[in-house]
Write a protein that binds this DNA or RNA. Structure first.
Length: 210
DNA sequence: ACATTAAGTGATT
DNA sequence: AATCACTTAATGT
């Protein structure tokens, strides 16, 4: 695991900082589906993703979900940074999209290392910036794209983070993630299949034009 | 063979 | 795009 960590972050941080992260941070390997952060919970750790992917989603009062974006290896959750600065509770939920390895950094270290290490400061600002972009993209997708384009983007994103063009998922699950009904997804998937974008099988979708 | 769950379809709002 | 009602197909026991 240390080699994986160094592979992803080694060129970003100086040796001292790497050592601090490794000694203070807590390594965790979580299986697919693990809920890492829930809405309303206070955040005590900031996760650094070593491998795998995490799905970030929002939920309304009825428990209806809406996927915002995925974070991958080399990424961190910008929400924790916001939380750290503003002392607020989490406004999002984070679920492991697949088996995922992370290092949990205590939130208080974020600020300390910001002052101590230039590379850390860059990393935090950089990832905050990237998340902001992702968020804008997510808004665009929801507000301006038709459902079929939205669906295709979702499928491509999912194929991307899973490093596999074959996605194991039911129409129902997609409908939940995109906050629509199963029937709509089935119909749109069918039309995407006819357009030659994807191939459908039970519990499985193959994305063709990646 | 039967029950359960996933997916496809027409019609209506 | 959502919902209903129904059919068909795949899968588990």
């Amino acid at each position: 695991m240390q080699s994986d960590f160094n592979f992803n972050y080694g060129h970003l941080f100086e040796k001292e900082l790497l050592n601090e992260i490794l000694s203070i941070g807590e390594y965790k390997k979580v299986p697919e589906g693990t809920e890492l952060i829930d809405i309303g919970s206070s955040i005590k750790f900031m996760p650094l993703v070593i491998s795998g992917a995490i799905k970030i989603l929002r939920e309304d009062e009825n428990g209806d979900e809406l996927v915002l974006y995925f974070i991958e290896q080399g990424d961190t959750c910008a929400m924790t940074i916001t939380c750290c600065l503003g002392q607020s509770k989490s406004k999002i939920r984070a679920v492991a999209e697949r088996d995922t390895e992370i290092i949990m950094i205590p939130v208080k270290m974020i600020g300390e290392w910001m002052n101590k290490y230039q590379t850390w400061q860059n990393f935090i600002l950089q990832s905050y910036h990237e998340r902001m972009q992702e968020l804008l993209e997510a808004i665009d997708t929801i507000a301006f794209l038709n459902m079929d384009e939205r669906l295709l983007k979702y499928l491509k994103d999912k194929a991307m983070v899973n490093r596999d063009e074959v996605i194991q998922v039911t129409h129902k699950e997609i409908a939940n993630d995109l906050h629509t009904s199963r029937v709509v997804i089935s119909r749109l998937l069918k039309s995407l299949e006819i357009k030659g974008e994807i191939q459908l099988n039970r519990n499985q979708i193959t994305v063709l034009n990646l």
